[in-house]
Nucleic acid binder design. Structure first.
Lengths: 123, 123
DNA sequence: CGGTATCCTCGAAGATACTG
DNA sequence: CAGTATCTTCGAGGATACCG
């Protein structure tokens, strides 16, 4: 049961992490979180604009993932009108922007793999 | 239902991906996959050596994640003895090694965040 | 427009025990 | 030593409908 631990263990918010990489994954590990963050890389976007970028994701799921990203301090939600039609924009916070170099590397690796193993369906 | 798609959509293995980042996450998105890959960054390791690095993970889960990583071509499993005690080593394949630069960035971001938000439990 | 509410499915991960 | 077998739990994500 008790096993020697040869390296760091972290604790954050009551959870245990066996490696600093798992800390990172706690933030970006949601199925579509990297997609959202990546599309916000150089512009604020509205809810429906994000939807158009990821049509396979349901409204509910997108909504939940946005909420988590907001709670984690990675993005900021701003409401621009108080009466319908609402305009809500999402954008990266300064903390969220620290993810950008990593997101670029993640996107590039995926592109390379896609070039060999996947097919581009729409452009 | 049909929404215009403003960017690439990928298909791989019968699944749809809305972004190249989600292709990457398909490979490394498992809860402990990055941890395994990171610890294999410069050395082959045996099953129990990997366990010691990640004591919070159950045997079953470790076993499953290793199997998936092997199926995805990211790591290679080698059995060195045919009779007990068995010696089995896991190491990165050439394809798996293409992940290393990204893993380093992921680990570094996690370390930076941990320095601010987490506490190191054991060393 | 930008979401919630409700209900449901399904797979990831855990607990525990056992094996070649 | 390096797993597998079973059973269970838990939560992410999906489907659909509705709301301010």
């Amino acid at each position: 049961m008790t096993i020697d631990c040869k390296n760091e263990q972290y604790e954050m918010g009551g959870k245990q992490f066996p490696c600093s990489t798992s800390i990172t994954m706690e933030f970006i590990g949601g199925k579509y979180k990297t997609v959202i963050l990546f599309h916000l890389r150089n512009a604020a976007l509205r809810y429906n604009e994000l939807r158009k970028f990821m049509p396979v994701v349901t409204e509910r799921t997108l909504s939940l993932q946005l909420k988590q990203l907001e709670q984690d301090g990675l993005l900021k939600r701003t409401v621009y009108t108080t009466k319908p039609p609402l305009k809500v924009e999402y954008e990266l916070t300064d903390f969220g922007k620290t993810l950008l170099p990593m997101l670029m590397v993640i996107a590039e690796w995926g592109r390379d793999v896609a070039a060999q193993k996947a097919s581009v369906v729409k452009v």
